[in-house]
Design a protein around this nucleic acid. Structure first.
Length: 136
DNA sequence: GCCAACGTTGGC
DNA sequence: GCCAACGTTGGC
């Protein structure tokens, strides 16, 4: 089981909408490193959902239900998407401020590569986020 | 609104 | 292959 984080501006596609939709196809990634991370996702992996720009916090988790396939929204180029379904909303969102203040999250990709929209998490990082977010 | 970081593009 | 210019992301 692998752990990941995806970033999305809530103005573009908010967690609440994701929950109402009961899942979505994670399209639109146009960065090679992020795409490669999408391709490394396995069915059943846990994905933390981060609201960038507005909110700046981890708001919930999702599960990968279909592994990478061709992004139908890509006009050209070799891009990928996965299917995600909501798993659990954070009891309390984990703010960027909290993440920065947490010593065990010092190495998290969110802080090290601020522009990467799909990134891996270590099991320990996932564990800390679950704890801070009040996820069972 | 500003700006730093950083990925991409294109001229050479 | 290098690097300047440019566009985008995302925190502040």
């Amino acid at each position: 089981m692998n752990y990941w984080m995806v970033k999305q501006e809530p103005d573009a596609y908010a967690w609440d909408q994701f929950v109402r939709d009961k899942g979505t196809v994670w399209t639109g990634v146009r960065n090679f490193q992020a795409r490669n991370n999408l391709r490394a996702m396995k069915k059943g992996d846990e994905v933390f959902y981060y609201h960038s720009v507005t909110g700046k916090s981890v708001v919930g988790t999702a599960r990968v239900t279909r592994e990478a396939y061709r992004d139908p929204s890509a006009e050209d180029g070799d891009w990928a998407c996965v299917d995600l379904v909501p798993r659990q909303a954070c009891r309390t969102p984990v703010t960027l401020e909290q993440i920065k203040a947490e010593p065990s999250l010092r190495g998290i990709a969110l802080l090290r590569q601020s522009r990467l929209s799909v990134m891996p998490l270590s099991p320990a990082e996932a564990d800390t986020l679950r704890r801070l977010g009040g996820l069972g």
